[in-house]
Simulated scan of single mutants.
Amino acid sequence: MIKFLSQNLMNCVLKLNLIEKEDENLYAYGAELAISYILNLIAIIIIGAVMDMMFYTIAFLIIFIPLKSYSGGYHAPNYLICFIMSCITVAAVLYITKYGYEYVPNNILILVMAFMGMMIYILGPIEDKNKPLTESEYTHFKYKIKIILVAEFIIAFASSIIGFDKMVFIFFCNFIVTLGVSSAGLLKNTFANV
C-alpha cells in the first residue's frame, strides 16, 4: 500500500514536472518513508485516544523518538512489520502505564533507569547494515545519546520529586523499549555476520 501511494504521488509529481525523472527513485523513497511515518503516527494517536491516554502517548513519542533516532538498534525488514511492532509496543507501554505504574516505587524506577541509561549509552549507537555510520557520525550520535539520556533522566527525576508518577513510568518504559531495541539490533548485527 505504501509503495502504491508513493508511486501514485511520484506519477503526479512527474506529470507536473516538479522533479527530474532521474531523481524519481530518491523522491519515491522519501515519500515512502514519509507515508509510513504518517500512518504510524495516526495509528499510535488512535491507540492513545482509544485507551484514553493521549497525553502519555504524546509524551512517550516525544521522549522515545529522539533517543531511538540516535541510539539506533533493530530495524524491521519492512513497513508492515515496523507498523505492527510500533503499534503493539505503544499499546503495551500505555496499558502497563495505565494499570501498573503505581505498583513500583519511583525510587526503584529511577535506580533501574540509571542502570538502563548507562547500558543504552555503552551500547549506542547501534548501526544498521543499510545505514553504516562514519566515524564522525558515530561520535556525534554518541554525544547526542548522552545529552538526551541526561535530559530525560533529569526530567524523570524531577517528575518523581513532584509526584508525577505516571510520567516517571513513561520515562521508565522509554528506557526499557530503547534498551530492548538497541539489544535486538546488536544481536541482529552479531548473528548476521556469523
Results as ranks from 00 to 15, higher is better:
residue 78 N to I: 05
residue 154 I to L: 12
residue 108 I to H: 10
residue 31 A to R: 11
residue 67 L to S: 00
residue 128 D to A: 05
residue 16 L to E: 15
residue 127 E to V: 04
residue 175 F to C: 00
residue 1 M to K: 13
residue 179 L to V: 07
residue 54 M to C: 08
residue 138 Y to P: 03
residue 72 G to Q: 11
residue 122 I to Q: 06
residue 92 A to M: 15
residue 167 M to G: 01
residue 137 E to L: 04
residue 48 G to P: 09
residue 28 A to Q: 15
residue 66 P to L: 00
residue 192 A to M: 09
residue 104 V to H: 07
residue 62 I to L: 03
residue 14 L to K: 15
residue 129 K to L: 11
residue 178 T to Q: 07
residue 83 F to E: 05
residue 153 F to C: 02
residue 176 I to D: 02
residue 60 F to A: 00
residue 66 P to V: 00
residue 80 L to P: 00
residue 82 C to D: 08
residue 166 K to C: 07
residue 110 I to H: 02
residue 147 I to G: 02
residue 155 I to S: 06
residue 29 Y to F: 12
residue 29 Y to I: 07
residue 118 M to N: 01
residue 119 M to E: 07
residue 8 N to P: 08
residue 89 T to F: 08
residue 118 M to C: 06
residue 28 A to D: 13
residue 13 V to C: 07
residue 100 G to H: 10
residue 158 A to M: 14
residue 149 L to K: 02
residue 25 N to L: 10
residue 23 D to Q: 14
residue 103 Y to P: 04
residue 53 M to S: 04
residue 84 I to E: 07
residue 126 I to S: 01
residue 138 Y to A: 03
residue 30 G to P: 09
residue 33 L to T: 12
residue 92 A to Q: 11
residue 1 M to R: 13
residue 45 I to W: 04
residue 171 F to A: 01
residue 146 K to Y: 10
residue 3 K to E: 10
residue 10 M to K: 11
residue 161 I to D: 05
residue 59 A to C: 05
residue 24 E to C: 11
residue 179 L to K: 03
residue 107 N to I: 09
residue 62 I to Q: 01
residue 113 M to S: 01
residue 44 I to W: 05
residue 185 G to T: 08
residue 34 A to F: 14
residue 30 G to R: 08
residue 83 F to D: 04
residue 158 A to W: 10
residue 31 A to Q: 08
residue 5 L to I: 14
residue 121 Y to C: 00
residue 177 V to W: 07
residue 174 N to C: 13
residue 96 I to G: 06
residue 69 S to H: 12
residue 157 F to A: 00
residue 65 I to S: 01
residue 123 L to R: 03
residue 57 T to F: 03
residue 4 F to V: 09
residue 178 T to E: 03
residue 17 N to F: 09
residue 49 A to E: 13
residue 181 V to E: 12
residue 87 C to W: 09
residue 75 H to W: 05
residue 139 T to F: 07
residue 7 Q to D: 08
residue 183 S to T: 15
residue 117 G to A: 03
residue 90 V to M: 07
residue 155 I to C: 05
